[in-house]
Design a protein around this nucleic acid. Structure first.
Length: 621
RNA sequence: GGGGCUGUAGCUCAGUUGGUUAGAGUGCCGGUCUGUCACACCGGAGGUCGCGGGUUCGAGUCCCGUCAGCCCCGCCA
């Protein structure tokens, strides 16, 4: 038995591919190399491409392992096989028996892993013919991909492409590695329900009507959060699940309504236990994906991240940092700057050496990004040979320029006011400036932990849990919980890779009294608390161990490791931005008797204008 | 819910200031071809210009509406 190099598209490390031989074939097509010449094989696969020279005919045979050229000719192919080979079309499914031969020296193809050999077909069997594919599987150099709508509509064809096969193979290997890794650490995989109780806060739930209980609904889980905490109280001290989660919110390129989390929780842990486990997992995953991850990862407190980068998930591939110029510029004779400082705000900004080369139009593009992030405006100035230019420059005396440590050619981008406004604006400014100036990266793979998030945030006078209501208050801050809750940090941590949030976790409250207190701060009265969280409080009161965990976004991990443009490229059957499945056509209307059984009634959507109600393919009259 | 981009042959795209019969490449069909690998060459078929309405002598092109896909804001504890 010869051990061959696997040629699957994502085989980037020594991960052995088992033989794909079956009763119908002796091998997969992509495994063959020069040393296999002389072997008698039977292979199956799809017709990828055909080159018909009349007397000679070549077919690129494809399966998930790769491509292999099959040659047909009168000297080695049975007459019947030769004749039907001329009629083969793209995506026909065939089976070929013949001998692997070294290709003539001048006819080898160095671009193909199997390019030194070809299968000389003796017999050909058409296992299934294919209609002309609606979208091509083959993609020539310079060919654009078909429209995304068509790729989703004909997903069975799009998924035949090597790129998507490679993506899903990597995904498989990462999931497998995850299970092995946590198994090795003593974690147990426990499944939790998909038909669950509606969660009172957070994202919109997908609801499932109950047939046996009129008017009542299950919810699909947004995450197994409460279940895993209950598993901790039950004594399963290390839990893991590759968990499917659902949130009925509008989509983005990095957001699908249905997604997969690596969900874990452990008892009797400190935050560093979780962080180190996850760092170890990321190191293993990164190695599989061929990217760099060297624990321990850099750590920033939430406050520091907001201060230096304006974001709770800064992209540290670039070093550019926000500076505090409150002292330096607070003396400038500008109403905006003075007002900001007098109002208790700060003056912060970015210094961009060489940034003065940007056109006014480009600087305005940066300002537009800041405004889109909620800033009323952005002040800017260029340091030039004869002083300065830009809206900010008129307020600047020479002493200000000195305080800014300005050099000729610098661009200064400044925002003034409360941090909660200027931080997001400066983060957007930072990203736009990096893009427009094409600043060089200082590293290709930036791993980061962001720690100590505030427990609460206030919006329109209401208190909200920053993460979720179960995060353990930081012990140093716990005495302020009642009087100054907004200043209380949680023992919480986010994993950030290249500016993308890959995971989020915390230690949890295990004292039912503290849990009740936090829920009260969030505005729930005791009745609501018992109704909505009674089962959790009951579990905590039964002797819950200190515990904590994290949830990592599997889809995003695969997407970011592949630098794929969209989550749709790492999910086999994704939804569109309108949450539709174009291939199978979900969601779809149901018959009214089915609705009746579920105690539901369809309400006509009130029509706009003087249109009557929308047409509905209901029961035929 | 809001903003933006896109929609023309199976696929990818062009289509000028509103003006004769809407084009190209590829795929498809037919033919020639024994070392191709984006095979080559010859010939052919293929169109509800997303859909509906309007302006106009005349609309792929202008206007209004609508549908779909994508990107963004809101939303996503």
């Amino acid at each position: 038995m010869s051990s061959r190099t696997p040629t699957s598209p994502a085989a980037s490390s020594a991960h052995p591919t088992p033989s794909l031989a079956t009763r119908l074939r002796t091998d997969a097509v992509g495994v063959f190399r020069g040393e296999d010449a002389g072997r008698e094989v039977t292979l199956t696969g799809w017709v990828h491409r055909r080159r018909d020279l009349g007397g000679l005919l070549f077919v690129d045979l494809r399966d998930r392992s790769g491509l292999l050229q099959v040659s047909f000719g009168p000297d080695w192919t049975e007459a019947g096989g030769l004749e039907s080979a001329h009629g083969l079309g793209a995506e026909d499914v065939i089976r070929i028996t013949g001998e692997l031969r070294l290709r003539p020296e001048e006819a080898r193809n160095p671009e193909l892993p199997t390019g030194d050999v070809e299968l000389q077909a003796r017999t050909l069997t058409l296992l299934n013919s294919a209609e002309t594919p609606a979208i091509p599987v083959y993609r020539g150099p310079g060919d654009e991909l078909p429209a995304e709508e068509l790729r989703l509509r004909y997903r069975h064809l799009d998924l035949r492409r090597a790129e998507l096969q490679r993506n899903l193979l990597l995904r498989h290997r990462l999931i497998l590695a995850t299970r092995n890794y946590f198994h090795g650490l003593g974690f147990l995989e426990v499944e939790t329900p998909m038909l669950t109780k509606r969660t009172p806060e957070g994202a919109r739930d997908y609801l499932v009507p109950s047939r046996v209980h009129p008017g009542e609904f299950y919810a699909l889980p947004q995450s197994p959060q409460i279940y895993k905490q209950i598993l901790m109280t039950a004594g399963f001290d290390r839990y893991i699940q590759i968990a499917r989660c659902f949130r009925d919110e509008d989509l983005r390129a990095d957001r699908q309504p249905e997604f997969t989390q690596i969900d874990l929780e452990a008892s009797f842990v400190g935050p560093d236990d979780i962080l180190e486990w996850v760092e170890g997992l990321m190191a293993e995953m990164a190695e599989i994906a061929g990217i760099e991850a060297a624990p321990p990862f850099h750590r920033l407190s939430w406050a520091e991240a907001m201060d230096r980068y304006g974001s709770d998930r800064p992209d540290l591939r670039w070093e550019l940092e926000i500076r505090d110029w409150t002292r330096v510029l607070g003396t400038a004779d500008s109403a905006i700057l003075r007002g900001a400082v007098e109002g208790g705000g700060r003056i912060r900004g970015l210094r961009l050496p060489g940034g003065a080369s940007l056109s006014r139009r480009q600087v305005e593009e940066i300002e537009a990004a800041a405004k889109a992030a909620g800033a009323p405006g952005l002040l800017w100035a260029k340091r030039t040979a004869d002083g300065g230019s830009g809206p900010l420059a008129r307020w600047l005396e020479e002493s200000h320029w000195t305080g800014l440590e300005a050099a000729e050619g610098d661009l200064f981008l400044v925002a003034a006011g409360a941090d909660r406004i200027t931080s997001p604006a400066l983060s957007a400014t930072r990203e736009a400036a990096i893009r427009l100036l094409e600043l060089p990266k200082v590293r290709e793979h930036a791993w980061l932990w962001v720690l100590d998030f505030p427990l609460f945030e206030e919006e329109d006078g209401e208190m909200w849990a920053n993460h979720h209501p179960f995060v353990l208050p930081h012990p140093d801050d716990a005495d302020r919980l009642q009087d100054d809750p907004l200043s209380v940090r949680g023992i919480a941590y986010d994993l950030v890779y290249n500016g993308s949030e890959l995971g989020s976790g915390s230690l949890r409250i295990h004292d039912p009294a503290v849990q009740r207190q936090v829920l009260r701060i969030l505005g729930l009265d005791d009745g609501e608390i018992d109704r909505k969280f009674g089962f959790l409080l009951e579990a905590l009161a039964s002797g819950a161990p200190p515990h904590g965990g994290i949830a990592l976004g599997m889809d995003r991990i695969v997407k970011d490791f592949l630098a794929a443009p969209s989550l749709r490229d790492v999910i086999a059957f994704p939804k569109t931005t309108a949450a539709r499945a174009l291939f199978e056509g979900a969601p779809s209307p149901v018959e009214s008797d089915e609705l009746m059984e579920l105690h539901l009634e369809r309400r006509e959507k009130s029509a706009k204008g003087n249109n009557t109600s929308s047409p509905e393919p209901e029961s035929p009259a």
